[in-house]
Amino acid sequence: VGDQVLEIVPSNEEQIKNLLQLEAQEHLQLDFWKSPTTPGETAHVRVPFVNVQAVKVFLESQGIAYSIMIED
């Protein structure tokens, strides 16, 4: 199991704000291929294997929908 690319769908401005804060966490080494800008629009982010669980827990705790787009 390696890195994953998640497709994330924020449903409101609050969730977009939370994702932008997540993007700013440099220690997570997230690679946003497509940043969140509009509710209902997908964002794509590559998550290093060591941080996959932490990111998924965060998304679930914020009620942000996501799916695994690419499993490496």
Rank of each mutant, 00 (worst) to 15 (best):
residue 46 R to G: 03
residue 29 Q to M: 15
residue 48 P to S: 06
residue 29 Q to E: 10
residue 4 Q to H: 09
residue 69 M to S: 06
residue 54 A to R: 07
residue 66 Y to W: 08
residue 69 M to F: 09
residue 35 S to Q: 11
residue 36 P to H: 02
residue 22 L to T: 02
residue 19 L to D: 00
residue 24 A to I: 10
residue 62 Q to W: 13
residue 15 Q to S: 02
residue 31 D to P: 02
residue 9 V to K: 15
residue 13 E to T: 12
residue 3 D to R: 05
residue 26 E to Y: 09
residue 12 N to C: 04
residue 64 I to N: 00
residue 63 G to I: 02
residue 56 K to Q: 06
residue 32 F to Q: 02
residue 7 E to M: 13
residue 27 H to L: 05
residue 32 F to I: 04
residue 34 K to Q: 07
residue 59 L to P: 00
residue 69 M to E: 04
residue 52 V to P: 00
residue 38 T to V: 15
residue 57 V to D: 12
residue 42 T to N: 05
residue 46 R to L: 10
residue 16 I to M: 09
residue 20 L to N: 07
residue 65 A to H: 13
residue 36 P to G: 03
residue 50 V to E: 13
residue 35 S to C: 08
residue 41 E to L: 07
residue 33 W to H: 10
residue 6 L to Y: 06
residue 5 V to C: 08
residue 43 A to W: 12
residue 18 N to G: 14
residue 37 T to D: 05
residue 12 N to K: 03
residue 36 P to A: 12
residue 19 L to I: 07
residue 35 S to L: 15
residue 7 E to A: 15
residue 25 Q to A: 12
residue 72 D to C: 10
residue 66 Y to K: 00
residue 56 K to W: 03
residue 69 M to D: 03
residue 3 D to C: 07
residue 13 E to R: 06
residue 26 E to S: 14
residue 4 Q to Y: 15
residue 46 R to I: 05
residue 42 T to L: 08
residue 62 Q to F: 12
residue 44 H to R: 12
residue 39 P to D: 03
residue 33 W to K: 08
residue 35 S to W: 14
residue 40 G to T: 04
residue 16 I to F: 09
residue 42 T to F: 06
residue 16 I to Q: 02
residue 17 K to P: 01
residue 13 E to N: 10
residue 37 T to I: 05
residue 43 A to Q: 04
residue 28 L to M: 10
residue 2 G to H: 11
residue 2 G to Y: 12
residue 52 V to E: 03
residue 59 L to Q: 00
residue 67 S to K: 13
residue 6 L to C: 01
residue 4 Q to K: 07
residue 39 P to F: 04
residue 36 P to K: 01
residue 38 T to Y: 11
residue 9 V to S: 09
residue 30 L to G: 02
residue 8 I to D: 01
residue 18 N to Q: 15
residue 26 E to C: 08
residue 71 E to Y: 12
residue 19 L to T: 02
residue 20 L to Y: 07
residue 55 V to H: 00
residue 39 P to C: 04
residue 45 V to S: 01
residue 30 L to D: 01
residue 41 E to P: 03
residue 50 V to G: 09
residue 67 S to T: 12
residue 7 E to P: 00
residue 59 L to Y: 01
residue 38 T to G: 07
residue 36 P to S: 06
residue 54 A to G: 04
residue 15 Q to T: 02
residue 50 V to P: 13
residue 35 S to M: 15
residue 20 L to E: 07
residue 17 K to D: 07
residue 29 Q to K: 10
residue 60 E to D: 12
residue 71 E to R: 05
residue 6 L to G: 00
residue 54 A to F: 14
residue 31 D to Q: 09
residue 72 D to M: 14
residue 41 E to I: 08
residue 59 L to V: 01
residue 45 V to Q: 00
residue 38 T to S: 11
residue 7 E to W: 11
residue 4 Q to E: 09
residue 23 E to F: 10
residue 11 S to G: 07
residue 1 V to L: 12
residue 72 D to S: 14
residue 57 V to G: 14
residue 13 E to P: 09
residue 28 L to W: 14
residue 72 D to I: 11
residue 61 S to W: 06
residue 64 I to V: 04
residue 45 V to L: 13
residue 2 G to L: 09
residue 68 I to M: 06
residue 23 E to T: 15
residue 27 H to D: 11
residue 36 P to Y: 02
residue 24 A to M: 09
residue 51 N to M: 09
residue 60 E to R: 05
residue 70 I to D: 12
residue 54 A to I: 13
residue 70 I to H: 11
residue 15 Q to E: 07
residue 10 P to E: 01
residue 15 Q to V: 03
residue 9 V to M: 14
residue 44 H to E: 09
residue 40 G to F: 09
residue 67 S to Y: 08
residue 12 N to A: 02
residue 49 F to H: 12
residue 72 D to W: 15
residue 14 E to Q: 10
residue 25 Q to R: 08
residue 23 E to V: 13
residue 38 T to W: 09
residue 10 P to W: 04
residue 5 V to T: 09
residue 69 M to R: 06
residue 20 L to Q: 08
residue 44 H to P: 02
residue 57 V to I: 14
residue 19 L to S: 01
residue 63 G to V: 02
residue 13 E to S: 09
residue 43 A to M: 10
residue 21 Q to I: 13
residue 48 P to K: 05
residue 1 V to Y: 13
residue 6 L to E: 00
residue 1 V to E: 12
residue 12 N to T: 14
residue 30 L to T: 03
residue 39 P to S: 05
residue 28 L to F: 10
residue 36 P to E: 02
residue 16 I to A: 03
residue 18 N to M: 15
residue 51 N to Q: 12
residue 60 E to N: 06
residue 6 L to D: 00
residue 13 E to V: 10
residue 40 G to W: 08
residue 50 V to F: 14
residue 18 N to R: 12
residue 19 L to W: 01
residue 55 V to C: 02
residue 7 E to Q: 13
residue 44 H to V: 15
residue 33 W to F: 13
residue 7 E to L: 14
residue 15 Q to I: 02
residue 17 K to R: 14
residue 49 F to P: 04
residue 16 I to C: 06
residue 55 V to F: 14
residue 48 P to I: 03
residue 14 E to I: 08
residue 26 E to M: 11
residue 15 Q to Y: 01
residue 30 L to A: 04
residue 44 H to S: 07
residue 6 L to S: 00
residue 46 R to C: 06
residue 62 Q to Y: 15
residue 26 E to F: 06
residue 38 T to Q: 10
residue 14 E to T: 10
residue 69 M to H: 05
residue 12 N to P: 01
residue 56 K to V: 10
residue 44 H to L: 15
residue 29 Q to V: 06
residue 37 T to C: 04
residue 7 E to D: 04
residue 32 F to A: 02
residue 69 M to I: 08
residue 5 V to Y: 10
residue 60 E to S: 06
residue 2 G to N: 09
residue 31 D to A: 07
residue 51 N to R: 05
residue 48 P to C: 03
residue 65 A to V: 10
residue 2 G to S: 07
residue 62 Q to M: 14
residue 41 E to N: 07
residue 65 A to C: 06
residue 5 V to E: 05
residue 52 V to D: 02
residue 3 D to L: 08
residue 29 Q to W: 06
residue 10 P to L: 06
residue 33 W to D: 09
residue 33 W to E: 09
residue 33 W to T: 13
residue 49 F to C: 07
residue 5 V to W: 13
residue 36 P to F: 03
residue 35 S to F: 14
residue 70 I to G: 13
residue 20 L to S: 06
residue 10 P to V: 09
residue 67 S to G: 06
residue 11 S to K: 15
residue 32 F to V: 04
residue 7 E to Y: 09
residue 10 P to I: 06
residue 43 A to P: 00
residue 13 E to L: 14
residue 64 I to G: 00
residue 8 I to C: 05
residue 22 L to A: 03
residue 58 F to N: 02
residue 14 E to G: 06
residue 39 P to K: 04
residue 55 V to P: 00
residue 45 V to F: 03
residue 54 A to D: 07
residue 19 L to N: 00
residue 61 S to I: 10
residue 23 E to I: 11
residue 67 S to C: 06
residue 38 T to I: 12
residue 40 G to V: 01
residue 47 V to Q: 00
residue 35 S to R: 15
residue 24 A to S: 11
residue 39 P to I: 12
residue 5 V to F: 11
residue 1 V to Q: 14
residue 66 Y to D: 00
residue 46 R to V: 07
residue 59 L to D: 00
residue 24 A to E: 11
residue 59 L to N: 00
residue 17 K to Q: 13
residue 40 G to Q: 04
residue 18 N to D: 12
residue 16 I to W: 06
residue 59 L to C: 03
residue 55 V to Y: 02
residue 34 K to S: 07
residue 37 T to G: 08
residue 59 L to R: 00
residue 11 S to T: 10
residue 61 S to L: 12
residue 9 V to Q: 08
residue 18 N to V: 15
residue 40 G to I: 02
residue 70 I to M: 13
residue 62 Q to P: 00
residue 22 L to C: 03
residue 1 V to C: 08
residue 28 L to R: 02
residue 67 S to V: 13
residue 25 Q to N: 11
residue 24 A to T: 12
residue 63 G to Q: 07
residue 22 L to I: 05
residue 1 V to D: 11
residue 67 S to R: 11
residue 6 L to M: 09
residue 40 G to M: 06
residue 68 I to V: 14
residue 36 P to M: 03
residue 30 L to S: 03
residue 19 L to P: 01
residue 18 N to C: 08
residue 61 S to T: 12
residue 18 N to T: 15
residue 29 Q to Y: 08
residue 41 E to H: 06
residue 22 L to G: 03
residue 36 P to D: 02
residue 72 D to P: 11
residue 22 L to W: 11
residue 24 A to Q: 14
residue 46 R to T: 06
residue 17 K to N: 09
residue 16 I to G: 01
residue 7 E to C: 08
residue 58 F to E: 03
residue 9 V to C: 07
residue 62 Q to H: 15
residue 17 K to V: 11
residue 36 P to C: 03
residue 42 T to A: 12
residue 44 H to F: 14
residue 12 N to F: 02
residue 44 H to D: 02
residue 46 R to Q: 06
residue 63 G to P: 01
